[in-house]
């Protein structure tokens, strides 16, 4: 068996690859479903219905998709430059904390001041958290995979310290929960009486901007060049360190925004269960989208649908909601195979 690179994978293949990966992952989910003793046809129907079957279900899916778009974009930006940022989870929490610090005390009564300053602070916090491992990589050669992973644990403990300490809500009666943000900082609802909020607009704008940045600017060209071949990029006169720092600011900033959006759009405060692994799921989102910023929107909605659908099916049929995490993990692995098939022609010789 030999693998020959395709000249350029056609548009059809670029869509067929993730679609078939998703179908295979969903089919493989029949194994855990059968193990849990759920009737398969009913379970799949309940999942579909729970994720997309009503206006309410759709808004729930889009609400879940919002942080996933942002973390997916964060991973896309980083992986394009081969900066292995596995720390979007920690950066999300950094952004969420910064949002609460900025917005828990009213210093302006205008949402037009509060919301942008929250976003800037959150993005900056996420960026700083990623800059630490990035500078360790570019200056000292420390592998960023392990450091970004370890910093997730450090950050979560820092959040725990803050919500039990200086940022704790005095009204929470000892519960580890931060002060709430003021009303002026809350993102407006998009559909009345649902949880869908303007964070989705922020995420969509971010996707368009990142797509333009990567595909239409010199900075994006340098990110892609460093990702494709760092030695060639250096030979072409690019400053690898600077490109990495720029990438880290974009990537960490986007993950930080995910935290801002969750605090200002959904929760109103920070707790230790703010994110059920949005940072890690962002990796799956980005890979399903083949590191295309606009594709991230589609794959984030799919992953969100899996989470919402599996949750609602699980509640109805007594299947553990970890089924969603299983499907998400499976789709990452099936996507790796599908991506290979899309990029190479298999010759049986």
């Amino acid at each position: 068996m030999r693998l020959e690179p395709r000249e350029s994978p056609g548009l059809g293949l670029r869509f067929a690859a993730p679609a078939s990966a998703i179908v295979v992952a969903l089919l493989l989910a029949a194994i855990p479903l059968a193990f849990a003793g759920a009737p398969l046809a009913t379970a799949y129907a309940a999942m579909f219905d729970g994720a997309l079957g009503s206006v309410f279900a759709l808004t729930e899916t889009l609400t879940r998709a919002t942080p996933l778009i942002l973390t997916g974009l964060a991973v896309t930006a980083a992986f394009r430059a081969k900066l292995w940022n596995i720390g979007a989870e920690g950066q999300l929490y950094a952004g969420a904390l910064a949002a609460v610090v900025i917005a828990s005390h009213a210093w302006s009564s205008s949402p037009f001041v509060m919301i942008p300053s929250m976003m800037v602070a959150g993005a900056a916090a996420g960026a700083v958290l990623l800059l630490i491992p990035t500078l360790l990589k570019t200056r000292l050669g420390v592998d960023e995979v392990v450091t970004t992973l370890l910093l997730n644990f450090v950050m979560l403990l820092f959040v725990s310290m803050m919500v039990e300490g200086p940022l704790q809500d005095p009204m929470s009666m000892g519960w580890p929960q931060s002060e709430p943000i003021v009303d002026e900082a809350v993102l407006p609802e998009l559909v009345p009486r649902t949880r869908l909020h303007a964070g989705l607009i922020i995420a969509l704008v971010a996707a368009v901007l990142l797509s333009l940045l990567i595909n239409r600017t010199r900075w994006g060209l340098e990110m892609r060049a460093v990702g494709a071949n760092a030695d060639a990029a250096r030979f072409a006169g690019m400053k690898i360190g600077r490109v990495m720092v720029f990438t880290a600011i974009i990537s960490g900033g986007l993950a930080g925004l995910a935290g801002v959006s969750e605090v200002a759009g959904v929760r109103g405060y920070v707790t230790l269960d703010l994110s059920p692994g949005y940072g890690y799921a962002g990796i799956v989102v980005a890979m399903l989208a083949q590191l295309s910023a606009l594709g991230v929107v589609v794959s984030a909605i799919f992953i969100a649908a899996v989470f919402v659908g599996a949750d609602s099916m699980g509640r109805a049929m007594g299947v553990s909601s970890y089924l969603a995490d299983l499907i998400v993990a499976l789709s990452l692995l099936t996507m790796l195979v599908a991506g290979l098939v899309a990029r190479y022609r298999i010759r049986w010789a």
Binding site: P32, I283, Y322, L323, D325, L330, L332, L333
Partner: peptide, 27 residues
């Protein structure tokens, strides 16, 4: 066998193995 990214596969295995563990335990 397939020669795909060791980083991404590894993260995938971690997500798969831990969610399989949690799912089995809960079931």
């Amino acid at each position: 066998g397939l020669g795909v990214s060791q980083h991404v596969t590894g993260i995938g295995i971690t997500l798969l193995a831990s969610s399989a563990a949690y799912f089995t335990y809960r079931t």
